[in-house]
Amino acid sequence: MTAALPPALICDVVRVHDGDGPLWCRSGVKIRIAGVQAPDFERAAPCRRPAALRRAYVCDDRAARRSQQLVARLTLGQRLACQPVDRSYKRVVARCTLPDGRSLSCAAIAAGAAISWDRYWRRYGLGGCR
């Protein structure tokens, strides 16, 4: 049986692992950013690009570090409003909103830190980016 999702939560971001998470909240919750895929340190070599991602996807240690740094600039020390939509590997998958009102998923894509993972983008009802 899957544990129930927590209600909407506030995440004061204290650490960022990869460009798609987890983001560590001061409360101890770990959040995976909903609907995006980014290069990560665990899969840097060899690259195991998910078949669902048809666009160019570079996975190497340098790309992972750049992606992590971009998301850290967006989120570190910020207070995010997050709506949990799923669970994955002991993390809460959530649609989060930055303090300026932008979707974190869209902001990560616009910054070049991640690409949309269409299957999950639709599943989590992320809609269009402005």
Rank of each mutant, 00 (worst) to 15 (best):
T2W: 14
T2C: 12
A3K: 12
A3E: 15
A3I: 11
A3G: 12
A3L: 14
A4T: 15
A4P: 13
L5K: 02
P6R: 06
P7K: 07
P7R: 12
A8K: 15
A8N: 14
I10M: 12
I10N: 15
C11I: 04
C11L: 11
D12I: 13
V13W: 01
V13P: 05
V14Y: 11
R15D: 14
R15Y: 11
R15P: 09
V16F: 02
H17L: 14
D18P: 10
G19L: 00
G19D: 02
D20L: 02
D20Q: 01
G21W: 02
P22F: 05
P22L: 05
L23Q: 00
L23A: 06
L23H: 08
C25S: 10
C25N: 08
C25F: 05
S27R: 04
S27C: 09
V29Q: 12
K30M: 15
I31P: 05
I33T: 03
A34D: 06
A34N: 01
A34T: 05
V36R: 02
V36N: 03
Q37S: 14
Q37R: 14
A38L: 06
A38P: 04
P39K: 00
P39V: 05
F41I: 04
E42T: 10
E42N: 15
R43D: 15
A44Q: 09
A44F: 02
A44E: 12
A45Y: 15
A45F: 14
P46G: 07
P46E: 07
C47W: 04
R48K: 13
R49F: 03
P50G: 08
P50S: 00
A51D: 10
A52P: 08
L53V: 15
R54P: 09
R55Q: 15
Y57M: 12
V58G: 04
C59G: 07
C59R: 02
D60R: 01
D60P: 01
D61I: 09
A63L: 00
A63D: 06
A64T: 02
A64W: 04
R65V: 11
R65D: 13
R66T: 08
R66S: 10
S67Q: 02
Q69T: 10
Q69I: 13
Q69H: 14
L70G: 07
V71L: 01
V71C: 00
R73D: 07
L76D: 01
L76K: 01
G77S: 02
G77F: 06
L80F: 04
A81C: 11
C82R: 08
C82V: 06
Q83N: 13
Q83C: 11
P84N: 02
R87S: 12
R87T: 13
S88I: 10
Y89A: 13
Y89D: 11
K90A: 13
R91L: 07
A94C: 11
T97A: 15
T97R: 14
P99G: 05
D100N: 13
L104T: 06
S105E: 01
S105M: 05
C106I: 05
C106H: 02
A107N: 07
A108W: 03
A108C: 13
A111R: 00
A111K: 01
G112C: 03
G112K: 03
A113E: 04
I115Q: 08
D118H: 14
R119S: 14
Y120T: 03
Y120C: 00
W121Q: 04
W121A: 12
W121K: 00
R122W: 09
R123V: 00
Y124W: 13
Y124P: 09
L126I: 11
G127T: 06
G127F: 01
G128I: 10
G128M: 11
R130I: 04
